[in-house]
C-alpha cells in the first residue's frame, strides 16, 4: 500500500471541513473495498483518507410504509442483504447485493460507497435507479436530495461538490402489483464485475403493465435508463412479442464499449437477452 495520512472525524461537519481543507489527494473512506485496490494499483494518488465510519447516525436501516427503505452511508452490502426489509419488496436490489463480489467484500463494502464509486458496472446502481432511489447529502450550506438517475456525471464521477457527503439513500416503497428483477451477466457465477447488468421494476395490474423502469449497467458511461424500452412495456400485456420488441429497443438504447471483458456487440446483444429475461423473472417474482 502507498502511505497516506489517516483521519477519523466524528461529525459530518468535521468530515466535510477536513476534506475541503486537506485539498487535493484527500478522499472519503467508507468501506474501502474499491479505494484500497485503487491505491495499491496506483490508480488513485491518495494523500489523506477521511474515514467517515466514526460519524454517528449513518449506520441505520429503516423502513416505513410511506417513504420506503432508507439506509445510511455506513450500511454495508452484507447488512442490507441480511436485513429483512428487502424480502418481497426489493428482490432486484437483493439479487444485486448477492451478486456483488464476495461475502467477505460485502461485509466491508458499503452500498453508498458502491453507488458513489459511480462505476457503470456497479451492481447496486441499476436496481436502485429502476426503483427510483434518491440520494441524501450533507453540505455545509445545507444538504440535498438528488434522484439517483441524476447523480452521475460520467464514469467515476458524480454531481457531488467538494466536501459534500452522501449520508443516506432512500428507495420508495413498491407500488401495488410491483414486479422487480436484476440480472447480471458475467463469465463466472461469482466474483464477477458485470459485463452487463439489467434491472427492471414494473407495475402490473390485471395483466396490464402500468409502469416500467429499466436500468442498464455496464453499457454506457453511466448506468442508463431505457425510456423508450419502458414505453414499449407500459400499456402492454407483456407477451412474448412485446418482450422481444422491448429487448430490441433496449439494445438500441445502450452505448456499450469493447474491452477485455466483452465486445460492444456482445454487450449489446446481452442487453436484449437480459432485458427479456429480467422482465420474465420479475413477473415470476411477484413483489
Amino acid at each position: 500500500m502507498r502511505r497516506f495520512e489517516y483521519h477519523e472525524p466524528t461529525s459530518l461537519k468535521e468530515a466535510s471541513q477536513l476534506l475541503t481543507s486537506l485539498g487535493e489527494g484527500a478522499y472519503f473512506l467508507a468501506g474501502g473495498t474499491d479505494l484500497f485496490v485503487e491505491i495499491r494499483e496506483r490508480l488513485r494518488q491518495v494523500r489523506h483518507l477521511v474515514n467517515i465510519k466514526r460519524v454517528p447516525g449513518l449506520d441505520q436501516i429503516e423502513w416505513s410504509d410511506q417513504t420506503g427503505l432508507r439506509f445510511g452511508a455506513q450500511v454495508t452490502a452484507g447488512q442490507l442483504e441480511a436485513s429483512g426489509y428487502l424480502n418481497g419488496r426489493y428482490p432486484n436490489l437483493r439479487a444485486a447485493l448477492k451478486a456483488l463480489a464476495s461475502i467477505q467484500v460485502r461485509n466491508r463494502a458499503t452500498v453508498v460507497g458502491n453507488v458513489c464509486r459511480a462505476s457503470p458496472s456497479a451492481d447496486t446502481i441499476p436496481p436502485l435507479i429502476a426503483d427510483g432511489a434518491v440520494i441524501e447529502t450533507y453540505r455545509p450550506g445545507g444538504g440535498r436530495h438528488i434522484p439517483l438517475a441524476e447523480f452521475f456525471a460520467g464514469p467515476g464521477r458524480t454531481v457531488l461538490e467538494p466536501g459534500e457527503i452522501v449520508i443516506a439513500v432512500t428507495v420508495p416503497p413498491p407500488a401495488q402489483g410491483s414486479h422487480r428483477a436484476y440480472l447480471k451477466h458475467g463469465r463466472r457465477k461469482a466474483m464477477e464485475l458485470a459485463t452487463v447488468g439489467v434491472a427492471v421494476s414494473l407495475e402490473v395490474e390485471d395483466g396490464l403493465c402500468t409502469g416500467a423502469r429499466v436500468a442498464l449497467g455496464a453499457v454506457g458511461p453511466v448506468v442508463l435508463r431505457a425510456p423508450q424500452t419502458e414505453a414499449i412495456l407500459v400499456g402492454s400485456r407483456l407477451d412474448a412479442a412485446v418482450l422481444n420488441a422491448a429487448a430490441e429497443q433496449a439494445m438500441q438504447e445502450c452505448t456499450p464499449i469493447s474491452n477485455v471483458r466483452a465486445s460492444a456487440e456482445y454487450r449489446r446483444e446481452m442487453v436484449g437477452v437480459l432485458t427479456r429475461r429480467a422482465v420474465m423473472l420479475a413477473l415470476e417474482e411477484a413483489a
Binding site: 463469465r187 463466472r188 457465477k189 461469482a190 466474483m191 464477477e192 464485475l193 477485455v260 471483458r261
Partner: peptide, 16 residues
Amino acid sequence: SLNAGLVDYKMPLSMD
C-alpha cells in the same frame, strides 16, 4: 497486459 488480476483473469471458482 489487459487482465493482470484475479477478477479479469477468470479461473473457475467454487460456484463454477
